[in-house]
């Protein structure tokens, strides 16, 4: 989180798991009804969020597992999302202390770069596997994901910002 005067409550592991499952659920929604390429990648969003805010709990391992889940759900080449998620999670971890104190909009630009990088990585993997070059709309999803960064971060922090009762 950016520098703040708030005292934050600790995050329960169940919340992390719940949000990740919800993200998976959101990704599984039938986005093809409004066009496949517009779908923001909620799983990547949550992964990045938790990696940035809870680097000791969520890391490359989670990214790999969720990536495999996404690959199976999307019917992609197995390991494609896993590789991309692992790489961007690592990149966040390597600059975690720096990114963490940025204001939200700067974080969002970082997220945009990371998401585009992930898309490029996946496109490269598909190219090597023999697929065609994707259309430019392929990169609309990362843009939407980056836009979602600020509201989603605020929403999740709202839980942590709840006032701690006096008795504690």
């Amino acid at each position: 989180m950016p520098v703040t005067s708030h005292l934050l409550r600790p995050v329960r592991p169940s919340l992390i798991i719940l949000t990740l499952i919800c993200a998976l659920l959101f990704n599984l929604l039938p986005w093809q009804l409004i066009g496949n390429h517009f779908a923001p990648d909620f799983v990547a969003l949550m992964l990045l969020y938790w990696t940035l805010n809870q680097p000791r709990r969520v890391g490359v391992g989670w990214a790999f597992v969720l990536g495999v889940c996404m690959d199976v759900a999307d019917g992609n080449l197995l390991g494609q999302h896993a590789l991309a998620y692992s790489v961007i999670t690592y990149l966040v971890l390597s600059r975690q202390r720096q990114l963490n104190i940025f204001p939200y909009w700067q974080q969002a630009t970082a997220v945009l770069g990371l998401m585009v990088f992930a898309q490029l990585l996946m496109a490269a993997v598909r190219l090597i596997a023999g697929a065609d070059l994707p259309a430019i709309s392929y990169f609309l999803g990362p843009l939407l994901t980056a836009f979602l960064w600020v509201p989603v971060s605020n929403l999740l922090l709202a839980y942590q910002r709840k006032p701690v009762s006096e008795s504690l």
């Binding site: 197995l78 390991g79 590789l83 790489v87």
Partner: peptide, 25 residues
């Protein structure tokens, strides 16, 4: 104790990913 370093983990998991891809494709 934080386990292996992130880079180590990345190497492990990306190798695993690539192995998966090769095994799949």
């Amino acid at each position: 104790k934080q386990g292996p370093k992130p880079l180590t983990r990345l190497l492990i998991f990306s190798t695993l990913s690539i192995a998966l891809m090769v095994g799949d494709a």
